[in-house]
Nucleic acid binder design. Structure first.
Length: 306
DNA sequence: GCCTCGCCTAGTTTATTTCT
DNA sequence: AGAAATAAACTAGGCGAGGC
């Protein structure tokens, strides 16, 4: 086994990230994806301890994305995605389309199916105004009634092995992207020709074979208390911006085979879209920090935070 | 103003290191 | 040996500039 980190070592790594909080999800992807447990508190996953560090910081949720000056402002959010992709190089190299996040998102889009998580109307939505802007694209956007789901898609396995992205990393990414897109809500509505009454909702979609799905199950079972509280805190933060709370979904199944049909990436087996989709419901958060201030329910703090 | 093609970045994949 | 963190390499696709 590799040497494990102590709380203090994790805390030092966390402090380094605070020099540039705008892109926390990006700069912190290293430690946010740690999958081990603390050296000096082996009952606790690194990610749950990091969630506590985030919660202990009063202003970090405000700081994220506050000073990004090249968030998309003049370019349209609608860049005319048509579900097609030139996969000739992939086909040439591997003989088939290997399972991967991007073609998977495209196949979900091309299916036109009404999923439990809505009907997908775009994918790879760029938030950047110019090439050198450092933040990326929103994986999937779907619509269900008047809600726009800002979806981060996390797969579990590729052909070459496990992808070890944690739920913490997914939460940080989705929080950031939803917050950023909401700043440009008017442009987005205009570009996508949506009704003005729509509301955003941060969503994480994964497969049951993914690490983040394991974390969703743990949350549902009352574990990962700090992450649960962090989600709760983000939901409260978002409610002030008229953004709906997080939702969590997992497609129950194995990686589907992807094929190309006239450049459109589709599922080889169309019935994949009828796979069971599990929604995870989080237990109520226990620690409360009203109005961005400090915790009040001091009686149970010791139980919640190690 | 549109098209082409090379550039740049994020995300993904592979290789290397570093421990027990 | 085996697992996890870290670094390096690769790929896809949006972006940007130059040609028409």
């Amino acid at each position: 086994m590799r040497k494990r980190y102590t709380k203090n070592e994790i805390k030092e790594k966390w402090k380094e990230l605070l020099n540039d909080p705008d892109l926390l999800y990006h700069n912190g992807s290293g430690i946010f994806n740690y999958k081990g447990v603390l050296e000096d508190a082996p009952a606790m996953l690194y990610i749950d301890y990091i969630a506590k560090l985030i919660l202990d910081d009063n202003i970090i949720l405000d700081s994220i994305g506050e000073n990004l000056n090249d968030l998309r402002y003049s370019r349209s959010f609608n860049i005319g995605h048509d579900g097609k992709s030139d996969s000739s190089s992939r086909l040439m190299k591997y003989g088939r389309i290997r399972f991967n996040e991007k073609p998977f998102a495209m196949a979900l889009y091309n299916s036109g199916h009404n999923f439990l998580f809505g009907k997908i109307f775009d994918y790879e939505l760029p938030l950047k105004e110019r090439l050198t802007s450092r933040y990326g694209e929103i994986d999937i956007l779907s619509k269900i009634d008047n809600e726009i789901y800002v979806i981060e898609l996390k797969i579990g396995y590729t052909d070459s092995g496990k992808i070890s992205e944690t739920l913490l990393r997914a939460i940080m990414e989705t929080f950031t992207f939803t917050k950023l897109l909401n700043i440009r809500k008017d442009n987005f509505i205009k570009d996508m020709k949506l009704p003005e009454t729509i509301t955003f909702r941060p969503v994480i979609l994964t497969m049951t074979n993914a690490l983040s799905a394991d974390h969703m199950k743990m949350l549902e079972n009352g574990e990962l208390k700090n992450i649960n509280n962090l989600i709760d805190e983000m939901n409260k933060y978002f409610s002030k911006l008229n953004i709906l709370p997080f939702k969590f979904f997992a497609i129950d199944g194995h990686n589907p085979e992807l094929i190309q049909d006239n450049k459109r990436i589709i599922f080889k087996d169309p019935s994949f879209v009828h796979s069971k989709v599990i929604e995870f419901f989080l237990p109520p958060a226990v620690a409360i920090r009203p109005e961005g201030k400090y915790f009040q329910q001091s009686i149970i703090i010791s139980e919640v935070f190690l």
